[in-house]
Computed example of a mutant assay.
Amino acid sequence: MKQIPEGDTHERDVCAQCGYIAYDNPKIVAGSVVAHEGKVLLCRRAIEPRAGFWTLPAGFLEAHEQPEEGARREALEEAMARITLEGLIGIYTVRHISQVQMFFRARFEGPPDFSAGHETLETRLFAWEEIPWTEIAFPSVVWTLQTWRAGEDGMRDIERFSVSI
């Protein structure tokens, strides 16, 4: 049943028999802008949501996984790419779907080596002017690419990354 547990401030699902409290917390997404010679790696999604649209390699963290580990794992799963992270671009809060998304600057570990993983139709390096903006899967991909392009440290203005869409 729904109730506010003693000492809490939010209504929660609480088991009437044993008192177990089920917390509904945000999902954490980690991803990266993998750049090579001014081009960025994008993946065309093979799965919903937004199948057929382009995105950055990114996905939900696994339990007990650090965001950096998750970003590297997602690049390997979605683009078969081994990457090195170079710093945090930004953290985006997407309230209406209860997600916190973290994106990192990255490069390939060696020469560019990538291909479509099982959740991806195709992968490709895009120059800025080639990015298919009308086919980008999620607003956070646009925000991240814009911050990457500007060469900004996204954490300078943390307020601009708390969005409600």
Rank of each mutant, 00 (worst) to 15 (best):
R95G: 15
R72C: 15
G70K: 02
E86R: 03
M102A: 07
N25V: 11
V33M: 04
H96E: 15
G52D: 06
G38D: 08
F53M: 13
L85W: 02
F114S: 06
E48A: 10
T93G: 11
E69H: 06
I47C: 12
C18N: 01
D113C: 10
P26M: 12
E86V: 01
A106S: 02
L41I: 04
G90R: 09
G59I: 00
Q17H: 12
S115K: 04
P67G: 14
Q99L: 07
T84I: 06
H36C: 12
K39V: 04
E37F: 00
E69D: 15
G110S: 10
F60S: 12
R72Q: 13
I21M: 05
P111N: 09
R105V: 00
I89C: 09
A75V: 04
P57N: 00
P67Y: 01
H36W: 03
R82K: 08
P111Y: 05
A51M: 00
D24L: 11
R72T: 09
C43L: 03
A81I: 10
S32E: 08
Y20L: 12
M80S: 15
A58P: 04
V100C: 05
V94E: 15
P49E: 05
A22V: 12
A46K: 02
W54M: 05
E65S: 03
L42V: 02
G90P: 05
A106M: 01
C18M: 06
F60G: 06
I83G: 14
M102G: 02
F60I: 03
I47M: 06
F108E: 13
E37A: 12
E109M: 10
E48H: 07
V100F: 01
T93I: 05
R107M: 01
G110E: 06
L56C: 03
Q17S: 14
Y20V: 09
L61G: 11
I91G: 13
Q99P: 00
A51G: 04
E86S: 10
L42K: 00
N25P: 14
A58H: 03
P49K: 07
E65W: 04
E109V: 15
A63K: 15
R73I: 06
K39C: 14
E109H: 13
P112A: 05
G38L: 04
D24H: 10
F104Y: 14
R95H: 10
P67H: 07
S115H: 04
A51E: 01
E74R: 13
V94L: 12
Y92A: 07
E86T: 07
I83Q: 12
V40H: 02
P111A: 13
L88V: 14
D113A: 11
R73C: 11
A75C: 15
A51C: 04
C43Y: 00
L41E: 06
L88Q: 11
E74W: 12
I83N: 05
A81F: 09
Y23R: 15
I89S: 09
K27V: 14
N25E: 15
G38E: 10
G70N: 04
A35L: 00
K27W: 06
I91R: 06
V34A: 01
F114P: 08
R72H: 09
S115R: 01
A35P: 01
Q17Y: 14
L88R: 13
P49I: 07
S98Q: 04
R44Q: 11
A30D: 08
L76C: 14
T84V: 14
I21Q: 09
P112I: 10
